[in-house]
Each structure stands twice: as structure tokens, then as C-alpha cells.
Design a protein around this nucleic acid. Structure first.
Lengths: 130, 130
DNA sequence: CTTGACCTTCCCATTGTGGGAAGGAAGAGA
DNA sequence: TCTCTTCCTTCCCACAATGGGAAGGTCAAG
């Protein structure tokens, strides 16, 4: 099948398929004599794997490792779990950072009248009025 | 003072100060006859405002609005609160997305033996085995 | 006058994604 | 066969915010 078909079948845009190929996440696709990329059902399977991994927030580099393990039938599940745990840790770190921002802002916003008066603790804090 | 001094005094790197100037977040700095940028304590105050807003995750565009309100002594605090609330909403949306990723991954990782066996529910899920 | 620390501008890389242009190819209908 | 539409190709650009670094000018202390 052509790239467009593979794209809709996998949920990965044609643009992204080409990109993943360019960065070596997937091997160069076979080509027709007119240079059209050709994909098999197996290729679509791989693309779907990538799609799901991206949906879980894995970076392209992490997916590279995951794909290698996926292909390696004699892998140790510990290796997979390690990568997953690292990603979980990274996610939790980001979540904590965002939560601190949100929390700080919520506290400030609660103290803000939110009316036509200019007095505002949010700007006060940003301006450094501790 | 020079840009290096302003940078350490404000916590904004010299690189970023130039960047903020280039995108119009701050007005072009006054220059010496040898083209060195010159900053006042007031300028540093503005930079510190920007720094804090960045720490709270506000985008440069949002900071542009906040700075305008900060300068406008006859602002309505409701305008500030609205911008803050929009940002809080955006943060919460991102947090929820990350939490869903993390949660899914944690559930999968819990079911993974994490030993030398190849069997792994994480790869199973990514490969679309359900 | 030299040396070191500082400044200037300019270019590049990041991460993953989309937009779009210019041009070739495939297939459908007349 | 001609044409039209849809698809494909490559190539460049843009994003947001930040850092790295090069080439070259400046300033202050010794």
C-alpha cells in the first residue's frame, strides 16, 4: 500500500512517517519504480506501535529502544520496565512542576478581586512585592 | 549597567534578554556609543517580572499582555485574573494529559515481571494485543 | 600595551509537527 | 488519448524558548 493508506491505517500522518524514516526510527520503505513508498501490514503494525508509544509521551529516542526490544524476542522484560519507569519518573517530574505553577497561580487568583479595580495580587507577586 | 549585570541581577540570561528585545517583549535598550546595551534598575525590575512569569509557565505572548496590564495603572484586575485563569486551565489540561499517560504506564508496569523473561504487558499493549 | 573579561551580531540545534510549493504519477471518465 | 483529480515525491519554512559557539570589537586593570 502507499503512504496515504498506511497513514490512515496506522493513525500516523504521512508527513510523520517520512519523518520517522528520515531519523531512522523505521527503515527506509521499499519503493516502486516511480519512487512511491510501499508499506506492508507489518509496517502498519510497527507504525501503530509508534503511535501508541507517542500517545504515552515517549520520545522518539525512547521509542527507538522500545522498538528494538519489541523486535528482540529474547528480550528481558526488565529492560522494558526500566525504560517505562524512567519515563514515568520524567512524567511525574513534569506533572509536579506544572502542579506547582498551577497551585501558585490558583492561590494568587483566589486573592484577586477580579473586578474593575486595578489592585491585583497576581501582578503584585510578579512584580516582586513579597 | 551592562547586559551581563542586568542578567545576573534579574535571573534572565543575557541571551534571553536580547531575545526578548528582538521579539518586542521589552523595548530596545539604550546603547552606549560602542553599541553596548545599557539597563536601569527599572529595566531589571521588568526582567524580574518576566522571569517570574516564565517560572509560572506563562508564554511570551501571555507575558506581553501581563506586562501591558502591569504598566497600566488603571487596569481592571479582572483582566489579569482572566489571563491567569486561562493559563491555569491550560496547565490543568496538560497535567491531566500527563497524568493519564503516567497512570496508563504505571498500570502496565505493575503487571510487568521485570525479570529476564521476555513476556511484557507494556510491549504487548504497544503492539496492540488487546 | 597586553590580557582577560565582557560585549556585539550572526548562525545553528533542539522536538515533533504541520503547511505549502513545484513537479511527477496513477487512475477514472470522455 | 486527453484531461482532471488525487496522490505521491522532495525541499523549505515555521513553530517556542533556549543554549552553544564563532568572529570580532571594547573596556579596565596591570
Amino acid at each position: 500500500m502507499n503512504i496515504g493508506k498506511a497513514a490512515t491505517a496506522s493513525g500516523v500522518s504521512a508527513k510523520m512517517i517520512r519523518y520517522y524514516e528520515s531519523v531512522g526510527l523505521i527503515p527506509p520503505a521499499r519503493r516502486t519504480d516511480t519512487a512511491y513508498r510501499v508499506y506492508s501490514d507489518d509496517d502498519v503494525h510497527v507504525l501503530r506501535f509508534i503511535r501508541r508509544a507517542r500517545d504515552l509521551g515517549f520520545s522518539v529516542d525512547a521509542i527507538r529502544e522500545l522498538l528494538a526490544l519489541w523486535r528482540d524476542k529474547s528480550r528481558a522484560s526488565a529492560d522494558v520496565k526500566r525504560i517505562a519507569q524512567q519515563h514515568i519518573d520524567a512524567l511525574e517530574t513534569r506533572i509536579a512542576a506544572l502542579q506547582e505553577m498551577s497551585g501558585t497561580l490558583q492561590r494568587l487568583a483566589e486573592c484577586c478581586h477580579g473586578d474593575t479595580r486595578p489592585d491585583c495580587p497576581i501582578l503584585g507577586d510578579l512584580g516582586g512585592k513579597p
